[in-house]
């Protein structure tokens, strides 16, 4: 099948999912309210933290908000595309994963198009609101080049975080566990990157830059856009964010396919 056909199919599959979710109007609104509340909560925590101390590792409140918003924006897209990957273990254990294998399309694609979480509008509303606010406060000059770079690094962020979700789900092929790995490893790691990496021990910074490249999701790109220094790392390393995203996602996809080959149905 051609790529175009896959696009067409993706939108057909998800539009059914979206319509289903919109049937529960109240639940839909509540979830968006909930998401915006908890992100605002983190922002308020940052504000109180800096109420007495002014700055955290040379980052001011507004700069930290900006850093946070970059992460939230790409995470929003990531939820739409990949968040349900963490639940692959349930499909394997219940034996329902087999239905993704018996259809004449790529199983990875089929699994990906299975779900489309509309509540991520919460992330978009929050992050765009923050971008506008911070741009006024810091008088950011949004040239075409900068806007384009932000867009590209958001794509990079989606691929990095999505790639990690894909790797976590692939673990289910070997261990029949994945959801738990998300909550143990990725959830805390995502929280870690809400704050500028410069405050962490060097080993942690190095790890989040080159092993699980979360630094390229928001810290490095935000440092480029805000013209901030990134000690211990080359200047403007943030420009590599889209490239890192592509490479990391390719590795993740390869691991997932490797796991799929190993997959044996649980039967029952």
């Amino acid at each position: 099948m051609s790529v175009l056909k896959y696009f067409d199919l993706y939108f057909k599959l998800i539009s059914a999912g979206v319509r289903a979710q919109l049937q529960y109007r109240f639940a839909f609104v509540m979830r968006i309210v909930g998401l915006i509340t908890s992100y605002t909560g983190t922002a308020v925590t940052m504000w109180i933290m800096l109420y007495q101390f002014q700055e955290l590792g040379s980052w001011t409140f507004y700069e930290m908000l900006f850093l946070f918003a970059v992460a939230v924006l790409s995470w929003g897209f990531c939820i739409i595309l990949f968040f349900h990957f963490r639940g692959l273990d349930t499909y394997i254990l219940n034996g329902t994963f087999d239905r993704f294998l018996v259809r004449p399309i790529n199983p990875f694609f089929h699994f990906m198009a299975m779900k489309f979480d509309v509540a991520s509008f919460g992330q978009f509303i929050f992050s765009i609101g923050i971008f506008i606010w911070v741009s006024f406060e810091l008088q950011l000059d949004w040239t075409i080049g900068k806007s384009f770079f932000l867009l590209l690094s958001v794509v990079g962020g989606i691929l990095i975080q999505g790639g990690l979700l894909v790797i976590i789900s692939a673990l289910a092929f070997w261990t029949t566990k994945s959801e738990q790995f998300y909550w143990v490893a990725m959830f805390p790691a995502r929280n870690l990157t809400n704050y500028p990496l410069v405050i962490y021990p060097k080993a942690v910074q190095w790890f989040t830059a080159f092993v699980i490249p979360f630094g390229f999701v928001n810290y490095f790109p935000a440092a480029v856009l805000l013209e901030k220094e990134t000690p211990f790392f080359p200047e403007n390393i943030g420009y590599y964010s889209p490239l890192v995203g592509i490479v990391f996602f390719a590795i993740a996809y390869y691991i997932w396919m490797l796991g799929l080959k190993r997959y044996k149905s649980t039967g029952s």
Binding site: Y24, A27, M30, R31, V33, G34, L35, T37, G41
Partner: peptide
């Protein structure tokens, strides 16, 4: 049936 918003306020 959906408590998302309220529970998030509580955790915050």
């Amino acid at each position: 049936v959906e408590t998302g918003g309220i529970v998030d306020v509580f955790y915050f």
